[in-house]
C-alpha cells in the first residue's frame, strides 16, 4: 500500500506492505538508521521516534499508521549544522557511552522539553522510564537533559556551547 508521511519535515511517499513496522520502514525503506532497533518487544525504547510530536516505540507501530502524519527521528533533531540543545547537552554532560539508547533518549527528551521546558529531576526520570540504557548511564543522561533545559536556544556550529537565546 502507498503511504505518504512527513518525515523530518519532508514529505515522503513509499509503497510498503501493511505488516512493515515503523522501525523497519525508517531504517530499511528510508535508510534512516539513526533509529535503533532493539528488543522487538516494546520494552527497551531504543526505537523511540516522535509521531506528531509524541514519543512512540516504533517497533510497535505499523508504518501504515503514520500515513498522513508527522514523524521525527534523530536525524531530524539538528537544524543544519546547529545541534538541538538536547544533542548539545548529551555532548556537554557525557550523556552517551555506547550510544545504543541515545537516539530514543534524545527524542523523548525533546518531547519532554517541548511540553515542559523546566522539568525537575523526577519528571525527567519519569519521562525516560520506558527506555533502558544498557551502560546504566542514567545519571549523565538526566544531567544532559537538565543541560538542554537550561540552554533552550544554543548555537553550536562548531560543537561548543554558545548561548544565543533567553536563559531558562
Amino acid at each position: 500500500m502507498q503511504i505518504t508521511a512527513t518525515v523530518n519535515g519532508s514529505e515522503v511517499v513509499r509503497d510498503v506492505e501493511p505488516r512493515v513496522l515503523l522501525v523497519h520502514y525508517l531504517r530499511e525503506v528510508l535508510g534512516l538508521t539513526g533509529t535503533h532497533w532493539g528488543c522487538d518487544t516494546s520494552n527497551c525504547g531504543t526505537c523511540v521516534v516522535l509521531l506528531d510530536g509524541q514519543p512512540v516505540k516504533s517497533c510497535t507501530v505499523l508504518a501504515a499508521m503514520v500515513d498522513g502524519h508527522e514523524v521525527r527521528t534523530v536525524e531530524g533533531l539538528a537544524d543544519g549544522a546547529t545541534l538541538d540543545p538536547v544533542q548539545q547537552g548529551f555532548m556537554e554532560e557525557h550523556g552517551l557511552q555506547c550510544g545504543f539508547c541515545t537516539p530514543g533518549m534524545m527524542l523523548t527528551a525533546r518531547a519532554l522539553l517541548d511540553k515542559n521546558p523546566h522539568p525537575d529531576e523526577g519528571e525527567i526520570r519519569e519521562a525516560i522510564s520506558g527506555q533502558i540504557c544498557r551502560c546504566t548511564g542514567y545519571a549523565t543522561i538526566v544531567r544532559s537533559i537538565q543541560w538542554a533545559a537550561a540552554h533552550p536556544a544554543t548555537a553550536a556550529v562548531d560543537g561548543t556551547a554558545e548561548t544565543v537565546g533567553a536563559q531558562a
Partner: peptide
Amino acid sequence: IADPVVRNR
C-alpha cells in the same frame, strides 16, 4: 501502567 511512551499509544 507500562511506561510513559507505551501510554502514549
